[in-house]
Design a protein around this nucleic acid. Sequence first.
RNA 1: GGGCGAUUAGCUCAGUUGGCUAGAGCACUUGGUUUACACCCAAGUUGUCGGGGGUUCAAGUCCCUCAUCGCCCACCA
Length: 892
Amino acid sequence: MNTNNEMPKAYEPADIENKWYPLWEQRGYFHGEANSEKKAYSIVIPPPNVTGILHLGHVLNNTLQDILIRWRKMQGYEVSWFPGTDHAGIATESKVEKTLRESGEPGRDELGREQFIEKVWSWREEYGGAIIKQLRKLGTACDWERERFTMDEGLNNAVRKVFVDLYNKGYIYRGQRMINWCPVAKTALSDEEVIYKDVDGKFYHYNYPLSDGSGVLQIATTRPETMFGDTAVAVHPDDERYKQFIGKTVDLPLTDRKIPIIADEHADPEKGTGCVKITPGHDPNDFMVGQRHDLDIIAIMNDDASLNAKCGAEFEGLDRLVARKKCVKMLEEQGLMVEIEDIKHAVGYSERGDVPIETLVSAQWFCNMKELAKPAVEAVKSGKINFHPQRWSKTYDHWMENIQDWCISRQIWWGHRIPAWYNDETNEIYVGLEAPSDGGSWTQEKDVLDTWFSSWLWPFSVMGWPEKTKTLEYFYPTCDLVTGPDIIFFWVARMIMAGCEFMGDIPFKNVYFTSIIRDDQGRKLSKSLGNSPDPLDVIDIYGADALRFSIIYIAPVGMDIRYSNEKCELGRNFANKLWNACRFRLMQGPVTEGFRDLSGVNHDLLTPDEKWIISWINEAIIMTNKSLEDFRFHYAVHEIYELVWSTFCDWFIETSKVRLFGNDEEKQQVLQVLDFVLFKILRLLHPFMPFITEELAHQMGFLTEEQTIMQESYPRPLANLNIPSIMEKDHDLLDLVEAKFQLVRAGRSLRANAGVPDGKKINYFIKATDQINADFLNSEIASLKILLKAGNIEISLIDYDVASHGAAPSQIANAGIIYLPLDGLIDLEEERKKLNKQKKELEGWIKGSIAKLSNEKFLSNAPEKVVSAAQGHLEEMKQKLERVESLISDLK
RNA sequence: GGGCGAUUAGCUCAGUUGGCUAGAGCACUUGGUUUACACCCAAGUUGUCGGGGGUUCAAGUCCCUCAUCGCCCACCA
């Protein structure tokens, strides 16, 4: 127990944060046991990329999860937060390639598959998972014993089993289809990995001569270089302009081919010239047109998006953009180009490569999602899974109901290799957990699976599936998922499908979608803009607690957050405030025994102020728990901020000083109340600010060295404890306390307006509203004096004697009128102006109020409560007006 | 083309089923070396709740409409 009062004046987080985390981890506080008697609470982390480093998005996301974990743990759940990283196929592969290139080592292709993969593994050993270490700086209570990696052996088993199952069900198939191709990573991509950007482009109008020499057809395209893959020109069947040409052919320029003119509804007469070139090998729409008309598919590109031999010697090997220019030039030379129009249009970009993707026909593995989607849609619709904010379920529904087949194969090496084998002789395909053992000659599929094909199993693969583990039995399904709305399709939707399919149960009950963090000008955070602060720097300056607290405090519900480092001052200042409140308390003496339950105090002897603070702590406990239940984190934080700073520090500590410096009996009682409230505050705040609350709970002597606040209970409404429900019992008394504080504010205002320095003791005269207030204020005279820094306060039921003392500035409060006698130094003109302004305002309100209350419809329709409140309010204003009027006449 | 969100104090945002005189932080002004805290204390200043219409006794809150900004989806050749 710490009884010294040598706490530094300002809170310095660095040492304290570095001290506690290793202790927590070593003592196993973060671990949840699967065989507990307690109720389970679990979360799986959205696994950050193994190449990733901590950024503010992670800070927000993981702080929220940590709040939930610590809160539930303190509530008595057996909790486990499953951490880990994602192997991030394309990102990691290109990262390692880049590293090799920069260090002059042999590259990917020189190394060959096996050696390259070894390199990736060793890179991961050395540099990968930096983010995991960085998370510890944030204070995250992850169950590190359970850390997983999407490429570890267990997860690989899960992936293979899922692939085989879905293949056997007929959902997974291999086929030739139009896919998205990244020419940088040289791999297929799923539709979700394509980002559409509006870019400046050109719309080329040029002529295809009719083979019979009877004229030309003018077509329009943004990509002339794809003409080498054209196998038709389409016009709309009802387009009168072109009907006569249907069935004829045109001479495809720059080639020696003739291609037919076909009628297809895909051709939009309104668009361009109404004639559209059909390139079934390189455009999804044209592909479908091609299928309808049985057109040839000509693939004209190499895997790096340069043109291939099909385009002729002049074009072979040229990059698509170079080829485009050349095409245009040649068409111009041949007099075929008619017009080049500047347009803005949407172009698909590869997420990683940041270059336009190509759509092309390729043999890939696909997963048909239609059946998988059905129960997943139902799970959200029925409310088994809840989205917060709820509106995201609409986005989810829309995508799920239009779900397309998922292209799951990738032409890279770093990933789960597809468990399919081709028979070298018969080309037969075998799919299984292991290679076929029939002695035949089989070659395994070279492609690996999309990274998300392992991530979508995360909620149960981290628990050991497909083994039937105790962990799985106890912790599955998880409770809450915290993630960004940007991966709702990539990850959230797919996890729900996988959970329903393979576990027969949803993977989580709630999904909380975080805000997106922007800089204070509203721009996205990015390395290239240099507006992405390093959270570790922020933690160095302000502390992890401050960063956590601030980011939650400023996070609007379901909207973008505008962040700047300066905003962390809020959290730092708050931590310092709390620190000093505790420091002040310790200066008054060692901890009292009643800090848990006020056991050393006769509850009947509690003063009004003490009852007041206890009722407020009760209120804060109720609100904080409720807010967390509803995922309204910022509410909870605001609630606690207000409680600590305003309610506790500004009012209760200040008013308690009179008793702290009074007799010993009074002092002992108020110390107990201070301890009781502070220990509740520390526990209430712990999930948000884990370090400082742990430190202070020890500094204060609430906990012994062997104990931790993590294992203390989260505050529950006091009605559940053995403390009388003060709120109900003493309602009127609490109103009197509030009225006292209001009167204090009025008195301070008088002092400030009169320009009397704070240090100078002054006298006040109070005319109480009635006997009850008079009695109460008299009993609180010592408190009033200290709050008002007054020398003497006279409380009376009789009017202030203007005749003998001269007029004095005054303020009206509910408890009474407070006067500041200034020995005639009053500025009568100012005072009159102030009172007349008040009078006018009051008259306005009274007028409105009377009108409202004489409205029959209001009286009959509004609820009783509202009507009586309005009546009470009117009475109040009328009385106040009377007082103002009498004060005005006093000034004459 | 569809869908979603935003618009409240100088700035960033609260304002949960409509109900007392619309709030907070920051910023700003004035005063303060009060025996916790200047990362502080006290007192202040700042609002046609984006425009218009409607429902209602009552609208920042519900409905319609317009405007501006942002995001997502969709095959705009």
